[in-house]
Design a protein around this nucleic acid. Structure first.
Lengths: 225, 225
DNA sequence: GGGCCTTTCAAACGTATGTTTGAAACAGAC
DNA sequence: GTCTGTTTCAAACATACGTTTGAAAGGCCC
């Protein structure tokens, strides 16, 4: 208990604060005082703030990527030979995320928000770390997407994947706030699973959209209903 | 020339640096040295760093929201009575953004990136400022979306709007990085206009997706091709 | 108990930040 | 030229940051 208690408390506090406020906006002093540990503990156990950021990501990304690999294995086994469909691939990913053992009820949205921040905040060291450590499941997901959308050009597919990533990371990362707004405005409760259930069809439809208009339509009279 | 020269140089430098690095990661010293003005000039002319951030947004958001209002006016006039379609509404927004008079060739992507950052980086003061100053065109856009998708339930529409926002904000906020990756991987150049031209069909298709699966499909054998 | 390694702690270090200051430079009006 | 209001400038201010230090405390084997 002694050794890892401090480490885990730091990781818990850092994870939550990073997700709430971003990396540069979260100081070690905020983290250590939330974790109720000494300021020097972060540098003692992790070495630096950047290394702490990496550790926060590694703690959920390592088991997640294992789960995901297994889900992809199962999926490909079930399809023996023929490539999985887009919906199947997206659901495999979604289920792996949702079914992950969570440390607390906010687990999933923190997880998503951190991924979004990793992409958005231009922290060079983080991007390098993630690319080095988790390139394999990422490439595999990309390959599955490619096989599930052979009709798309590489460029179209690339951008549509970015759009999917954005819709997902953004929505999941702010899902607490969004759920609250919805609760207040329409009086509806929404679980993360339900958001995912709404998101996947949206993504699949967007991914399979027919027309990529490379020239904006004239602003005058044409309606593209 | 004397007075506003310094002000504009500060705004130009700040705009570019904010878009490149984010708000907290950009110091006043970086801005003033890039603008070749004295450090104290920012506080003299704007009052504070936060006020400078607001000024950067106001400089492009005020003319943009005027352009947008006009575009919506035109659109509604052309449709006399019947509500504009989803595609028309999205294109009105996109065109207003793309056709805005730019200060330089990077104008549009800086503009987009800043909007993405505004949503992403949790700068409370910025969100408050934007809500106070630009709530009208935003509400109008929401109203048009509602009229263009009468088939959706309020809840579905709400979430799908969030998905659209996410895809847009996320893509735009990292669009430079994404363009670079694409350039290196596939050797393809991409303009902001082209990204927008790819994004709109994606969004429209997602928005109009038929099925909202409220229960995730069983992980065993069903394929939802 | 004494020795040894790990962990905690309060304090300090050096650096960077946003902001303020007071004097200097400049402008235009009379 | 001199006065007045505005703008620039170098310097300093107070504060916050990530990191380091050296001593104290704790656990564990013999």
């Amino acid at each position: 208990m002694a050794q890892s208690d401090t480490v885990d408390r730091i990781l818990d506090a850092a994870e939550e604060l990073f997700a709430e406020r971003g990396f540069s906006e979260t100081s070690l002093r905020m983290i250590t005082s939330k974790a109720k540990v000494n300021l020097a503990a972060v540098n003692y156990h992790f070495g630096s703030k950047n290394a702490l950021i990496h550790a926060v990501f590694a703690r959920f990304l390592t088991p997640f990527s294992a789960t995901l690999e297994k889900a992809f294995d199962d999926l490909e086994a079930r399809c023996d030979g023929t490539p999985p469909t887009l919906n199947q691939t997206l659901w495999a990913l979604t289920e792996s995320a949702v079914r992950m053992p969570q440390r607390n009820e906010k687990g999933i949205s923190i997880f998503m928000r951190l991924l979004g921040l990793a992409y958005t905040q231009s922290q060079g060291h983080l991007r390098k770390f993630l690319e080095q450590e988790y390139s394999e499941p990422f490439s595999r997901f990309m390959r599955l997407l490619k096989e599930a959308t052979p009709q798309l050009s590489s460029v179209d597919r690339y951008w549509r994947i970015q759009f999917m990533l954005g819709a997902t990371a953004f929505t999941m990362s702010s899902s607490d706030a969004l759920r609250d707004i919805l609760q207040n405005k329409l009086g509806v409760e929404t679980s993360v699973q339900e958001i995912a259930a709404r998101l996947v069809p949206f993504l699949a439809a967007g991914m399979q959209a027919q027309d990529t208009m490379l020239i904006p339509p004239p602003s005058t009279k044409v309606s593209v209903a």
